[in-house]
Write a protein that binds this DNA or RNA. Structure first.
Lengths: 137, 137
DNA sequence: TTACATTGGTTGACAATGTCAACTAAGTTG
DNA sequence: CAACTTAGTTGACATTGTCAACCAATGTAA
């Protein structure tokens, strides 16, 4: 098997597995919304622009996504003292709860994936993935 | 870095690189169309159903995709002697040409990615990816 | 400080992709 | 044969992604 095939096929399998599990949740959030929650929680003083850059998506799309999340009271906007144009995004309590649920699902899928696989091998995989990526940047 | 992050991030980098290159082509085909050409060329006696299953997509979507490709004379439908309900899909000359162009681009991106990386490492990565996937199926 | 360019965000319009359900026609099975 | 399944087609719709215009805040150079 070729590398491209192996990579694409693994990614899609993982992705579909996670989406499948997420559907079981009572949540009415789309995968993109959940992904955004995750990124917002990870990025320090996250703004819309940072989120768009990090996710590699159009700012229009991100903006609508944020609006929806704020609407559902999962994300809170607070004004940015450093820059009057932007606002800082952070998770509300509810947002944190949702994210926790999602993280559990993701972790569970990865745990299944790594069943009976030695940790060094996983380490090696990560290292290789990063080497590969490094060559493209 | 965690495995999930490494995997997702590598995938997206590769994907974006390929899309970026494809846009340089004079082609007005979308990534999905190109992917379909690729799969059609790979699968023996490919039918719509096989294509949908292989790509893990809805048959409605695949059907419209095929219609478009046939429209653009990149794919040819021939009636299936084995089964009167389905038709066999194959690439036309033009379709083959397009696919070749795409394959060149994909290969180029992967070659860049694997620059100065030992072949055994790549082999190992493929092997690990398959092990991982195996655990999810 | 003013003039100009840049940046962050917002919106409209639209394109591309993905999903669900209903339906026809051909095949399969008891 | 009747009941069921499968391949394909279509309509309607949801989600995701893109492009361009615009405003207000910021940065910068003369």
């Amino acid at each position: 098997m070729e590398l491209n095939e192996a990579l694409f096929s693994l990614f899609h399998t993982v992705r579909n597995k996670i989406i499948e599990q997420v559907k079981q949740m009572d949540s009415d959030l789309s995968p993109m919304h959940l992904k955004s929650l995750k990124v917002i929680s990870k990025i320090e003083d996250c703004t819309g622009q940072k989120l768009a850059t990090f996710m590699g998506r159009d700012k229009a799309q991100i903006n609508r996504l944020i609006k929806e999340l704020v609407n559902q009271e999962l994300v809170i906007k607070t004004s940015n003292k450093e820059d009057g144009r932007s606002q800082i995004l952070s998770l509300s309590g509810r947002g944190t709860q949702y994210l926790d649920k999602f993280n559990k699902i993701e972790k569970q899928v990865f745990d299944t994936m790594l069943k009976d696989i030695e940790p060094q091998k996983v380490e090696l995989f990560i290292q290789l993935a990063n080497e590969f990526k490094g060559n493209l940047q």
